[in-house]
Computed example of a mutant assay.
Amino acid sequence: MIGKETTGAPRWFRLAALVLILWGALGVAACVSQLLYGADAMGAASDYDRALFAQLPLWYRLDYAIATGTLLAGALALLFRSRHAVAFLTVSLVAVLIQFGWMFAMTDILAVKGPYTLYFPLLIMAIGALALQLAHVGRRRGWIV
């Protein structure tokens, strides 16, 4: 909004932004590692893991980079109280939904590895949704503009 005044963000908001920056940095590091080293980046990979990684389309890898990069950018935008946080975190959440939606709908990973493979992706989605909600709260309360 033009002319909207900002108010000081509370300490918990800044702390949440710092935690999200750490989470985002870990995500970017995991993405870079996996793109550089393949399935073995996460430890000893099974033959299934190597085959699955080898079949991932290029767009999927790009989507992974977008998901992690925009989360980190959005977290930094939150810390610096930038209105761009909402856009970055929206793009990140959409990219995560595309990434995991494709993975679970278009591969046999659930049949091979079981339903426990959903836990970490669900955590990633939940954190992404909470980060976006935090940006909206910050925007409504004038903590970011």
Rank of each mutant, 00 (worst) to 15 (best):
G69P: 03
T90L: 05
G69A: 06
W102P: 04
I98N: 15
A67N: 11
L72P: 00
G101H: 09
A75C: 05
S92F: 09
S92L: 07
L79V: 00
I98E: 15
A105M: 15
Q99M: 11
A65Y: 04
T107W: 11
D108C: 12
L71E: 00
L71R: 01
A77S: 05
L79M: 05
L97P: 07
G69I: 10
G101M: 08
T70R: 07
L93E: 05
G69L: 15
F100S: 12
T70P: 01
T70H: 09
M103K: 10
H84D: 06
A65P: 00
L79P: 01
L78W: 03
L79Q: 07
L71V: 08
D63M: 08
V86D: 12
T107F: 07
I98M: 15
S82F: 01
L89C: 05
Y64F: 06
L93P: 00
Y64W: 10
A73C: 03
F88M: 11
S92K: 02
T70A: 11
A75K: 03
D63V: 08
A75I: 01
A77P: 00
Q99N: 14
V86Q: 14
V86W: 13
L71K: 05
V96C: 03
V94K: 13
G74H: 02
I98G: 14
A75Q: 02
M106I: 08
L97R: 02
A73E: 02
Q99P: 12
F88A: 06
A75M: 01
T90Y: 03
T107I: 10
A105Y: 14
G101T: 12
A105D: 15
W102R: 15
L62E: 09
V91K: 04
F100I: 15
V96P: 00
D108T: 13
A75L: 03
F80W: 10
F104I: 12
F80I: 09
T68F: 11
F100K: 09
A73R: 01
T68G: 08
G101W: 07
W102I: 15
I66G: 00
L97S: 11
H84W: 15
Q99I: 04
L76P: 06
T107S: 10
G74P: 00
A73V: 03
V91E: 02
S82R: 09
D108Y: 12
V86A: 13
T68L: 07
A65K: 02
L97E: 11
L62G: 11
Y64N: 10
F80T: 09
M103V: 12
A87E: 12
M106Y: 12
A67C: 12
I66T: 03
T107K: 11
L76K: 08
T70G: 07
R81T: 06
V94N: 12
L89E: 00
L76S: 12
T90G: 05
V96A: 04
I66P: 00
L72C: 04
S92W: 03
Y64L: 08
Q99C: 12
G69S: 06
I98Q: 14
A77F: 02
V96E: 02
M106S: 13
L71P: 01
F104Q: 14
F100M: 14
F100R: 08
L89V: 06
M103Y: 14
L72F: 11
G74I: 01
I98P: 08
A105P: 13
L76A: 13
A65N: 00
